[in-house]
């Protein structure tokens, strides 16, 4: 296994607020890595920095052997890094199919029909609703659309930010089942979750982020057993 994503000592500021303080972590090819932590710990900020929406003041980010620290976000997508942002951020006023087409923006026009079928196979609900305005979908469907949209870019690394947020338990199960399937089919995944239990159950490795710093790391199985984690994130 080779290091796919290497984040080295990044420091990110929101104005004067030092939001991320020297965070380093790795994601290896074929892994599911999760970043867990409480609300406000800086998990989303880390993902936004990796995908280029925010810039680190200090530190570097390497993806597939290339330094992407200063690469604009639309170029990072071309390199095979897709980010499903927090709150899904689907295009509410566009149809389901148009949303998926936007996901394929960096791809050649000729492959789009086949890729749409690939996503519809994964998410049959989206096929039923392909002509519907995306803003009218339910929360679970919107999450599926956001994931399907990211898959349209043929990502080598898929970053998911809180895919379970606001969903009913049965839908959370469904979303995690999809994450497992994607992983089996060879997609490397970086998962950010507040639902630590679920996240640790699918992850190969995990990092714990607390107020902008990584305080613990280990394999998913190790962290599930750790007393600290049990107390802080798994309800005893």
């Amino acid at each position: 296994m080779s290091t796919f994503l290497h984040v080295e000592n990044i420091n990110v500021y929101y104005g004067a607020i030092h939001a991320i303080q020297g965070v380093s972590f790795d994601v290896n090819e074929g892994e599911i890595v999760t970043l867990i932590g409480a609300n406000g710990a800086g998990k989303s900020t880390v993902l936004k920095t990796v995908s280029g929406l925010l810039r680190p003041k200090i530190g570097s980010i390497t993806f597939a052997g290339e330094d992407i620290t200063q690469t604009p976000p639309h170029k990072i997508v071309e390199k095979g890094l897709a980010h499903v942002p927090e709150g899904r951020r689907i295009f509410q006023q566009m149809t389901v199919e148009e949303n998926l087409e936007m996901g394929a923006y960096t791809q050649p026009q000729s492959g789009i029909t086949a890729d749409l079928e690939m996503v519809f196979e994964q998410f049959p609900r989206l096929k039923e609703r392909r002509r519907q305005i995306a803003g009218t979908l339910s929360g679970g469907e919107q999450q599926m659309l956001a994931m399907g949209r990211a898959l349209m870019s043929h990502p080598k690394l898929l970053m998911l930010d809180e895919p379970s947020m606001g969903l009913a338990p049965i839908l959370v199960e469904q979303i995690f089942e999809i994450i497992r399937t994607l992983h089996k089919s060879g997609t490397t995944i970086l998962l950010v979750e507040q639902n630590a239990q679920m996240a640790l159950s699918v992850a190969d490795r995990a990092y714990v982020l607390e107020t902008g710093e990584i305080t613990l790391s280990g394999t998913g199985a190790e962290l599930v057993k750790s007393d600290e984690i049990r107390k802080a994130y798994l309800g005893g």
Binding site: H74, Q92, E98, M102, G103, S153
Partner: peptide, 24 residues
């Protein structure tokens, strides 16, 4: 058109549009 749809995407959500690979 692809460009026209990209424009609508940018008008709705610049950040999300960038994550699609659209040059804002």
């Amino acid at each position: 058109t692809k460009m026209g749809k990209a424009m609508r995407a940018v008008s709705e959500d610049k950040g999300a549009a960038q994550l699609m690979g659209i040059n804002v």
